[in-house]
């Protein structure tokens, strides 16, 4: 860990001013990821700009009937907020599937989006890693890659985005509100995180002098038929091998609308409109679910240790959709899979 200076941002404008003035500065919110990365010598910010006290801690209803969640709302507060529990239980469930209570108390909504991959080599500064050191090579492709990606990978990087919350946000069509020296803008969720391509060092399309101010979720919450299922190597407090966010709007047994997103398998939450479209108008049952799984997993490729993820994801998708259809969402406290 390197020596660094520390300053608190007084308001959003001040935060932007400070970050724009110093390319070696970083925002710190909950610090649950950034501080770890500093301890591992992966990140060396010369200056930390503490944004945790910014007035971005509220959850407000939007005129369109959705919600605007402040970037500094702690993950726990978000998961247990009555409006989230009632209208967006998929989001609440995904958050509670992640990390531990202590971490969720510290972690912020904005920070969760920007948490970095858990690829073992990314954390081990002794080994080559294109994401950490562009051009050095990818050790995971032929190395220990049980936790790595099967979709959207490149020759340069096969890392995954580890967030659970983001998988639900992707399924819910969230938009990210950001602000920078040039003003504010919103980014649709699929455009926020990037695929690794030839530039795996860039996780997102957020500019280095921009700040996330909030997340907007549209009115549709799918609170009747949804489920978040996370499969991992122990029953809690582990990152997903594969996770699935599923949301259905049913008319009788017929699917009116479907949302389906995967975590733990790609550099971003993995969604494919074709897989969702294929379910529309179909009977909510195994054959539609299997077809959707096949579509969503098209092009999936294993790298040795993680080959099993493809078959696992297929089954997990079908199961999660079935939980959603049955109105029996996966409990995050009782670990028996419904």
């Amino acid at each position: 860990m390197n020596p660094f200076s520390y300053a608190r941002a007084s308001d959003v404008a001040d935060a932007i001013r400070q970050i724009a003035a110093d390319p070696a500065a970083r925002f710190v919110a909950g610090g649950t990821n950034l501080i770890d990365l500093m301890k591992y010598d992966v990140e060396h910010p010369a200056r930390l700009i503490d944004i945790s006290q910014l007035p971005l801690k509220s959850i407000e209803e939007t005129p369109e009937g959705g919600l605007l969640i402040g970037a500094m709302v702690p993950n726990s507060d978000l998961a247990y907020h009555p409006l989230i529990e009632q209208r967006y239980p998929l989001l609440a469930s995904a958050i509670l599937a992640g990390a531990s209570q202590q971490l969720r108390n510290m972690a912020s909504t904005g920070g969760n989006l920007l948490q970095r991959t858990r690829c073992f080599y990314f954390y081990d500064v002794v080994t080559p890693c294109n994401k950490r050191k562009p051009g050095s090579g990818c050790s995971a492709i032929s190395g220990v890659n049980r936790i790595n990606a099967i979709l959207g990978t490149s020759d340069a990087c096969i890392a995954t985005h580890p967030s659970d919350m983001c998988v639900a946000l992707a399924a819910l069509d969230a938009r990210v509100h950001v602000a920078g020296p040039g003003g504010a803008r919103t980014v649709a969720f699929p455009d926020f995180h990037r695929l690794p391509g030839a530039t795996p060092e860039r996780d997102t399309n957020l500019e280095s002098d921009e700040i996330i101010t909030g997340i907007e979720i549209p009115a549709k919450g799918f609170n009747a038929n949804y489920s978040y299922l996370k499969i991992r190597d122990r029953l809690s407090y582990a990152f997903a091998l594969v996770s699935v966010a599923a949301a259905l709007e049913l008319e009788g047994d017929t699917i009116k609308e479907a949302r389906l997103a995967l975590g733990g398998v790609a550099h971003k939450p993995w969604r494919d409109p074709a897989a969702e479209a294929a379910m529309r108008g179909q009977h909510a049952g195994e054959s539609a679910f299997t077809k959707a799984a096949d579509l969503l997993l098209q092009g999936a490729q294993g790298y040795g240790h993680n080959n099993f993820k493809i078959g696992l994801a297929r089954r997990a998708i079908v199961r999660t959709l079935s939980q959603a259809a049955r109105g029996m969402p996966q409990s995050q406290s009782v670990k028996k899979i419904r």
């Binding site: 080599y121 081990d124 002794v126 080994t127 190395g143 809690s236």
Partner: peptide
């Protein structure tokens, strides 16, 4: 069910040298 020190034999290094990635049972287990 959980414990395994993962080596990258190419580098001769332990890759999961921390208790987030070296799994031991948690309460849920």
């Amino acid at each position: 069910l959980h414990e395994e020190t993962l080596y990258d034999h190419h580098f001769g290094r332990v890759m999961n040298a921390n208790i987030a990635e070296y799994h031991v049972p948690v309460n849920a287990d």
